[in-house]
Design a protein around this nucleic acid. Sequence first.
DNA 1: AATGAATGAGAGTTCATTCAT
DNA 2: TATGAATGAACTCTCATTCAT
Lengths: 216, 216, 216, 216
Amino acid sequence: MTSETDDLNAIVRGARAEFREKQIVDAAVSLMQTKGSHAVSMQAIAKSAGVSVGLLYKYFSDREQIVLAAITRVLDDFRLRVPAAIQNADDPVDRIIAAFTEFCRVVDEHRLAVVLTYQSSRSLSRSGLQSIQSQELATLQPLIDVVDEAAARGDLREVDAGTLGHDLMTLAHMWALKHWYFQQTGVGLDRYIDRQVRTVIVGNLSDGARRRVGLD
Amino acid sequence: MTSETDDLNAIVRGARAEFREKQIVDAAVSLMQTKGSHAVSMQAIAKSAGVSVGLLYKYFSDREQIVLAAITRVLDDFRLRVPAAIQNADDPVDRIIAAFTEFCRVVDEHRLAVVLTYQSSRSLSRSGLQSIQSQELATLQPLIDVVDEAAARGDLREVDAGTLGHDLMTLAHMWALKHWYFQQTGVGLDRYIDRQVRTVIVGNLSDGARRRVGLD
Amino acid sequence: MTSETDDLNAIVRGARAEFREKQIVDAAVSLMQTKGSHAVSMQAIAKSAGVSVGLLYKYFSDREQIVLAAITRVLDDFRLRVPAAIQNADDPVDRIIAAFTEFCRVVDEHRLAVVLTYQSSRSLSRSGLQSIQSQELATLQPLIDVVDEAAARGDLREVDAGTLGHDLMTLAHMWALKHWYFQQTGVGLDRYIDRQVRTVIVGNLSDGARRRVGLD
Amino acid sequence: MTSETDDLNAIVRGARAEFREKQIVDAAVSLMQTKGSHAVSMQAIAKSAGVSVGLLYKYFSDREQIVLAAITRVLDDFRLRVPAAIQNADDPVDRIIAAFTEFCRVVDEHRLAVVLTYQSSRSLSRSGLQSIQSQELATLQPLIDVVDEAAARGDLREVDAGTLGHDLMTLAHMWALKHWYFQQTGVGLDRYIDRQVRTVIVGNLSDGARRRVGLD
DNA sequence: AATGAATGAGAGTTCATTCAT
DNA sequence: TATGAATGAACTCTCATTCAT
């Protein structure tokens, strides 16, 4: 076999592996979303993914790795999309709003996976837990940065950037965690975002900034 | 046997039942806090409570009822202590702060049980879930009331009381949910409360109220 | 409940436990004898013992404990019966022969369990292995003692007691390990014992002893 | 393609096949020695041999054939080396000693494979078992022959050649089977051989032979 | 009222074997 | 000739639940 064919094989293998992993994590996420991570067996994941149990273990060393991969997929989306949304806005205050808005949208798209993140914490190994915690910190950072930036510009009342940033993340997560409540009270995503912006962002703007953005 | 003795027996029985239930739920809570609800077996609860497995089923129809009882115990504490804390303050703004502060303190005392609440949602039966959701709404109500009250007095900027109340609950819960983060950043409970008050309460006060409480 | 009933309960429990353990080990031994230890599943042991899989784990913490118990049962028989057989003989040479003969008889009765002992060595945990090794040393000791005794009386040519004792044990074990060979060559237990006595015992007697026992 | 090239191809194929089989059995033996035959998977053998799982099945019809090949390799060594060692000695008694000594040396070199032989017996198919049993008989024969020869020369006390020959094999095997014991008692291979010679060979020499070899 | 022995379905995981490439 | 992805039955072990005492 020539090394050219070797290369091709390697590429095919890589592509297949990627495809399989996606296939498995997709199945896992969709099952876990409806029943909770603990209620989903490897047998069920295999069946839902249309592969054998054995194959699951070819791609993931154990059950935890699948859960971890499911969580990581969501967190990756945050890391990609929130900074992109920030770049599309110029005004410091608009950048905060854009960041929070996009954060909420990602949460909404992965609503049940976000819930999964909070549910799984207790059943993960120490190293698995640390891994997702550090990834989560990475999703938080852009929010803090954008708040810091606005503060430096004098657009915010005296406020702790870490706290405000973390609150924004928290409230975005809450859209998933307490979705039953918002559904019950008839609050849609856009209204939720609007109300949170008015409650935690506008309230913390300096008088000048508040007049400028005109949301009051 | 006289009916008097009957009555006495009934009382004794009732007292014993109450004692047993407490004994069992205590054991369950303490085990679940360290290992997560799913990792705790009925056998382990029985052993830790110093009773037999069989007895567990005399007092609780199945495993879920024990989990539910554990969660209910925490929620009861909220319903009892937050209104009490509110009554101890007179000024509408102080009442908001007192409510939030006490809410945070209860969360802190039952930190792992609060986490349990979020974790269990997916594995509970529909009726069990509804039960704790309605109890949770009951813990939320005092926060909304106290915000409404302040708004009626003109102490708040134009703000949605439901949103602000829910945010306060959310941020109190977050003290438990993200405890690893605050520990890592060296933030203690008192500082956490102070920062949240400055970020989400003070920011939403009307100019008059802000001047009055002098937290600015 | 009185402490008398408690005592009775404890006795009943103990008796039942003993009965169950015997029941399980019996089933395990008989299955392992025909198929080899590795080929016997916990399901099969449970079924053969007429109990549930779960109960197996009530009495034995894991699979290895059952294997260990099966082996220990045979080794206990050696420790009990070989010394008894020795006591029934007076002449030092007769005592060696009696010891070896009884050793062979025990092997014959537990033939397949002896094979099990040799087979299992590799799959046992370190501590399990050490446990059966030390038990085996205990079965060896009477053979060495009896040889030493005869040597002290001047009944043996100059010979290493440890070596001769260990050889006797080895050759007794071999009756089980190579049973297919003796069956093929038409050698029964009694003839096997007789030939080994002539080959390894008589050959090592001093002239005086040889004349005395008259086996030559 | 000429038939000459065909021949050449056939030779190359044969050589490759032989190489592959050796490669696979080598890997299998070395893995089984450390972990026991049952603990070694086909995947592990393939990996250790540096080939694919599929290829294993091109050269061996199933797992048992690999185990069988591993055992056969050791037994082949006995068949080759023991007769060679015998030829190097002239005196009938020396020939017995030489045969036993070499037998022990081969055992020592393949210690764990010998253990494997005893362990595998129960898990082999009937035909596989018979195959190794007949090979084992072939390793035993030279020992019996050499004893017979000495007996015919009048160098042995009246003794059963089959029994003595089999005992010699047994005691050689035991060097592997009870290696933990000899290690514990600080007995090395040479001392083990020496002691066994004194115990089972010298004891069975006729007075004349004993005087001649002067080992007494 | 209380026990705990007993159950058995179902969990995660492994591995001999096959087969399309 | 050689690969290794894929299979799925079988493994050990757990645990919610029952029931005779």
